[in-house]
């Protein structure tokens, strides 16, 4: 079985255990295994854009350095971790002043910009292939109307993330189709849920999340899927009749590896 270096992130160890477990189980069913990298540290949740913020990016660089030393692909599942690590990777590749500052801190773990950061979704699309995912589906989700919720972190800034068309993405919709379900396109799928501002201004986050959910509902979605624990929190807190689940949970369900306790 192909082993892929995996950065889970702090929330997947705590509040978002499902996101992690279903990702691992699904990977096994699809013929690859997620190998957690050694001694990983929290990515910090957000990428600080200032050029002189060095310390806040070191944990991401350490993860990148580990992947560089080993097998070149660094897989993430959480949108936030993915965003932070990918933006850090970009800064290490393109800002030599920043890179030399960083590498001065990291004596034995310097990073030279050759790891390949991939989100789980990208891995399914580019390495496994959605066609192959579809072939492994045992519980087709036929008839279920699912709205993909990208939020901001997976897609922006597009110049760095390069995952999909940032204004009309299809990667999650293609996965939904592969699982036999019906993707629902709605215009708020790449608008912000309110993010970390929820901590001190719940009303602000509520407004944004309600817009997203209303938009998905109006377009006919029964379920909204996300790859981000914070998106899930904000949406769920403000959801009335639309269910919010991690994409890995749907995947596990379709692949028949979700386990009876959750059926």
């Amino acid at each position: 079985m192909k082993k892929v270096a995996y950065f889970p992130g702090c929330t997947l160890r705590t509040k978002a255990k499902d996101l992690d477990k279903y990702a691992k189980d699904s990977a096994n069913a699809l013929g690859f295994s997620l190998e957690e990298i050694e001694n990983w540290q929290c990515c910090g949740g957000v990428f600080t854009t200032s050029k002189d913020e060095i310390a806040t990016k070191l944990s991401s660089v350490r993860a990148l350095a580990y992947a560089e030393k080993n097998n070149q692909i660094l897989l993430t599942v959480c949108s936030a971790c993915h965003n932070v690590i990918k933006q850090t990777d970009n800064a290490m590749r393109n800002d030599s002043e920043f890179a030399s500052h960083v590498n001065n801190y990291l004596k034995d773990e310097t990073y030279h910009g050759t790891a390949r950061v991939m989100h789980y979704l990208e891995y399914l699309r580019d390495e496994v292939g959605f066609d192959n995912v579809a072939q492994k589906v045992v519980n087709s989700l036929k008839g279920v109307k699912i709205g993909a919720y990208y939020g901001c972190l997976l897609l922006r800034p597009n110049s760095v993330m390069q995952m999909d068309d940032p204004e009309n993405p299809r990667i999650i919709e293609d996965l939904i189709k592969a699982l036999g379900a019906e993707p629902v396109i709605y215009p708020y799928r790449n608008e912000c849920c309110g993010g970390y501002v929820a901590l001190e201004d719940a009303a602000s986050a509520k407004k944004k999340s309600v817009s997203v959910l209303e938009s998905a509902k109006q377009a006919g979605a029964d379920i909204v899927v996300t790859a981000c624990p914070l998106c899930k929190y904000n949406l769920e807190k403000n959801a009335s009749d639309v269910k919010v689940v991690y994409f890995t949970e749907l995947l596990a369900q379709a692949l028949g590896v979700k386990g009876d306790e959750n059926e």
């Binding site: 705590t14 509040k15 978002a16 970390y196 901590l199 001190e200 981000c228 929190y233």
Partner: peptide, 27 residues
């Protein structure tokens, strides 16, 4: 803008760690 002492009062039981670390980083 925010200190760790402020945080307990702002939490609810579903709040993911990600929200807390992100807000601290930002604030």
């Amino acid at each position: 803008h925010l200190t760790s002492d402020d945080i307990p009062a702002l939490l609810d039981e579903d709040m993911p760690q990600q929200a807390i670390v992100s807000a601290l980083r930002k604030y």
